[in-house]
Every structure is written in structure tokens, then in C-alpha cells.
Design a protein around this nucleic acid. Structure first.
Lengths: 303, 303
DNA sequence: AATGGATATGCCGATTACTCATGGAGAGCT
DNA sequence: AGCTCTCCATGAGTAATCGGCATATCCATT
């Protein structure tokens, strides 16, 4: 029995997505096909590659070992394709960045602008995603760098080896976004009791994660009237008076007209930490340049 | 159309052997299968990979580019296999050495002995071969280092890019091996005329290459009575009085009883140069250690 | 108990990947 | 020149593989 390039690509995708089903969707296969591919790969490798859990799969030690080398192999062949007829190797280099949704509003675009001025030939690819998906992508070698957001206690996202390198960039206080025409708009701050009964606009939020967009630890049970993942949507819902939501002013220096950001008093302050995460080991020059640009933008926003 | 790992392995083998047919034999395939595999690979790569000549094939620029990356990919997967269940990575490292037949008599064994004392965990693999086959193996990434022998003018074996790194190790004079009981055995030297009519023991020698084992430039047409590739065979034929052959004393400090090595006078001296050849670029530590051991053995033999 | 999301597997059609056999083309030898 | 040798290409036939569909199973949650 022999390994297959397709099998290795599927392995990478499964490692990145966390489930056979998601990998199948991403690759345009059926779940059945992915299951067979992985069974075949396990036989070819002569070792179990995954631990199967009801919620998905996780790589075993052998799986991580194979993935590490598979990424090298697949990258080499992609480089071969580019070299053979994908133009003549930009070779200034390329970087792949992942980030949490809010970072897409300001930090990332600004960093890319600066970077393009300083390194015009650098090719930067970005992808938005959740913390677990970005962590998996780092481990799958599909990303070089990720901007992650975390709340205290800032547990490192390291469920398995090798540990990722985590560099905190800034801490930002949480505030609430309220409609400019509403009762809180002109106030210097609002209290927890005042906002507890307001209708909230939240992100879909998964089962085990707390609702994003609702101030945590409020008395009573919050009313979630709208759910939306997109920031522009949420802010315009706020502007339309449909409800309020949480936001970090440092990461959103400019909000649409009709929206105000006001701090909350009377409860423990909520801070969000933004970190730069990557696989351990030496960095390529393009990755370093991007990391540097992100650090500077974070420092600017921290003021 | 998609590339295949098998296709890449076949590519490497073809690059190493120089013909589809030889690669097919080496891999246990039919020539037809190799031809199809390569046609499929060319289609997948979207470029011609070989120039077809009557005597075999040669890689095009695209072919070399793909080979370079393919070697990386295949090595990565072989490393994965070893890591997953081929014992725990010796990781002191491994080197693959190729050499011309005569080097297998003394230089290589001695160097390996020394090396094993100094680096007991180093795994050295060796392979004997002709100059072109070793050069192709270097280019195919199947060898790290090769000992080659050349006669003046010492043309570099570089028919295509990138040029190989060639480091001369020693030059040795050619002599003739004669039976100890024969008329020449007690002589300090023999003349060209004396040996011209002797029966010779030669190596098979390919079509375009001159006969190995016969003193070049002799008057008249030499009589080749025996052909053998193996040194031990040739020397024992000499001892048995079946004929004479050429040999380099520096590379064969010890010959079987019944054989004497005597220099030849009256013709231009024949020198053979032994060189250490490798692909350009940085060397791994194991490769450097082996290269160092070979250099020292060569210096010892040069006395 | 029922539900929902996850992986595994029997079955089938289309494709792929070999081998066998033959054809064609170029280089070297007599 | 003609012969022969070696090499690569290709048509035909067959065995194996791959992916999709439908279904079974398992587990955590409601």
C-alpha cells in the first residue's frame, strides 16, 4: 500500500478543519471519500493518525509527525508548479496571515498598507477565522502568522506539541456600542444595570463558547434580539437602534455615523488581549517583516 | 490532471538512470509503464520535462526544476516514514557516497573505518558506479557525495546547470600489473614496446569510452584477451599469467600475491585524478565529516 | 427516548494504471 | 548503403482503484 499526494492533501485539510466532514466540504469531496482516504493513508503509514472523538478527530503523535513532513512535501510541489509556469518566482517572498474578525477592520489593513510601501514585492495572503481554526491552520502549515484575541485567563492555545509561540501585542478595554440617538449616546459612561435590560446584538457563538457581543457577567438573563457575525452589519444594526453590542474602541477607532462607543462602569473591567501567534522555530524574512508591521500598528492603536 | 507520488519517484529514477528503460528495470516496471507515467507527469506539470534522444532522455529546464522540488518532497516523506516507525531518528545523520570501482578497494573502506571511530552513529551508505551514473545520482539527489576518477584533460562533468562542485583530491600515476612469475616482475620499469604485444585484461568499456585497463596510446592494436569489471578478478587473472592490465599503485597499495605493479617508461606518463564531487550549496554535517575523512585518506595515499 | 453531528462501510460505475505487443526513429558498425 | 541495436511511443485489454450514494453505528446533548 502506498501513500498518495491526494491523501496528504486531505490530511492537511483535515488537520486544518478538525473534522473529516469539514475537510470534505472544503475539498469538494464527500465525507465518505475523506474517510476512505484517511483509512488508506493510515494503512500506508502503518500507524493510526487520528484519535476519533464524537466531535471530530485529533492528530496522534504519528499524525503530527506525518503532517509536518507532508507540509514540506506539498509546499515543495506547489513551489515547483509556481517555478515552472507561475511567473518567475516573486521570491521577495510570501506570507500567510490569519486573524480574528475584529482585526480585519483596522489593524490588518493598516499593517498591509505600511508593508506594501516598504516591501512592494511582498505577497501577503490573509484569512479570517476563529481561534481554533487559525491555530489548526498554523499547525497544518497553511498559515505563517496569526493574530488571535483572548480574554483572561489567557490560556495558551496549545493542546498539543510543539507549543506555539505567543507574543502579546496589546490589551484593549471593552466598551459598548450604542445608537447615537439613544439615551446613552451623550454619556461619559454607562452602568451595568442600565445595559442589563437592553436588547443585545450577538455573534452566533458556538455551543461551549460564551456569547460574543454580550457583556459578560451581567445580572439576569440578557435578551439577544439579533445575531450577526459581520461587524459592519452589527454596527449598522446598532445605528438603526435595533440593540447594543460590545466593541473594543482601540481596535475600532472609527465607527459608522450613528454609533457611539461608551465605557461601562460598575463592573470589573473587561480586557481583550491581542497576540501574535506562530509555530516555533526560525522565521522567514517576509514573515518577520509582516510581524514587525503588525507590532507597530498595535503599538499605535494602544495609545 | 494531477501529479502523483509514483510519477515523481519515476522521474527521480529516470533522472538517475538516464533512460526510461533503465528506470523501468530498476523499479520493476515495464518500459511502457514508465513512458506513460512520464507522459502523464508532463501533462500534469504542463511542460515538457525531457528532451528525447536516441540514446536516452535528458531533463529540460522545467524537468530540472521539478526534479529539484520532487527530491525535497520525496525525502520529506521518507523521513516521515523513518520517524513514524523506523526507529527513533538516528539523527546523528546519514550520508550517501558514490565512487568509481577502484576507490572501493582501499580509499573508501579506510575512510569508513576512520569515520566510524570518530562518529559511531553516522550512517554511511555507498554505491559503486560509473562517472555518468554517479553524476546523475548526484543531480537526482540520491547521492550526497561522489568520488570520481578522470584523465586529462579533466573536463568538468557539467553538461547542465547548476554546475557541480569539483574538488581534486589526489593525482596518481598509472602502472601495469604483471604476474610475479613473468619476465617483467623483477624489473624496475617496462617500456611501451615491451608491453604492446602482451595480452590485456580490460574492463567491458562502453562504446564511446576508451577501453579501461589497456594502456592508452600504445603502438599497434592491443590484444584484449579477457574482459572483467571486477578488480579482484582482474588481479587474479594477472596472477594466473592470463595477461596484464593497468592499475594505479597509489589506489592499490596492496595487491594479491603473484602480482607486481611496475611503472612504464618511454611514453608520456598517464595520470589519473581523483576528485570529490557534490552538488553546490551548503553541506550537512555528516557530509562534511565524510568529505573530511576522504580528504585525509587521499592525502595519506598520495605519499 | 429522540436528535444531531460525527465516522465507517457495502455496493457500484467510471476512471486509472498496469502489461503485452507492435511500430517508428536515430546512431553506429560492417 | 544497409543492418542492427537501443531507445521511446502507442493501441488493446485487463485488473485495481477512486469517489459517490446510501446506510449503519457511535456518542453527547436535550
Amino acid at each position: 500500500m502506498e501513500m498518495t499526494l491526494i491523501g496528504l492533501r486531505v490530511l492537511r485539510e483535515v488537520a486544518q478543519r478538525g473534522t473529516f466532514t469539514a475537510a470534505a466540504d472544503a475539498l469538494g469531496y464527500t465525507q465518505s471519500a475523506v474517510s476512505r482516504q484517511m483509512a488508506a493513508l493510515e494503512q500506508a503509514a502503518g500507524a493510526r493518525l487520528f484519535d476519533r472523538y464524537p466531535g471530530g478527530v485529533r492528530l496522534t503523535g504519528s499524525g503530527r509527525a506525518l503532517l509536518r513532513h507532508a507540509v514540506v512535501a506539498l509546499d515543495a510541489l506547489e513551489a515547483a508548479d509556481r517555478e515552472m509556469h507561475g511567473a518567475q518566482e516573486a521570491e521577495e517572498g510570501r506570507v500567510r496571515l490569519g486573524f480574528f474578525p475584529t482585526a480585519g477592520a483596522v489593524i490588518v489593513p493598516r499593517a498591509l498598507t505600511i508593508l506594501r510601501q516598504e516591501h512592494p514585492h511582498l505577497e501577503v495572503t490573509t484569512r479570517e477565522g476563529t481561534t481554533p481554526s487559525l491555530v489548526r491552520a498554523l499547525r497544518a502549515g497553511t498559515l505563517d502568522l496569526a493574530l488571535l484575541s483572548s480574554r483572561p485567563p489567557h490560556r495558551s492555545p496549545n493542546t498539543d506539541d510543539p507549543p506555539l509561540s505567543v507574543e502579546p501585542l496589546l490589551e484593549a478595554h471593552l466598551a459598548v456600542a450604542v445608537p447615537a440617538g439613544g439615551p446613552f449616546a451623550q454619556r461619559g459612561s454607562v452602568s451595568a444595570e442600565e445595559i442589563a435590560r437592553e436588547p443585545w446584538i450577538a455573534s452566533p457563538g458556538t455551543a461551549n463558547a460564551p456569547l460574543l457581543g454580550v457583556w459578560p457577567g451581567l445580572p439576569g438573563r440578557p435578551t439577544v434580539r439579533h445575531t450577526a457575525r459581520d461587524w459592519l452589519t452589527k454596527l449598522h444594526l446598532v445605528a438603526a437602534g435595533a440593540g447594543i453590542t460590545t466593541a473594543t474602541p482601540a481596535l475600532l477607532p472609527a465607527v459608522p455615523p450613528g454609533v457611539r462607543l461608551v465605557p461601562v462602569e460598575g463592573v470589573a473591567p473587561e480586557v481583550r488581549r491581542v497576540s501574535l501567534v506562530r509555530m516555533p522555530g526560525p522565521l522567514g524574512a517576509p514573515t518577520q517583516a509582516l510581524a514587525h508591521a503588525l507590532r507597530r500598528q498595535a503599538a499605535d492603536l494602544a495609545d
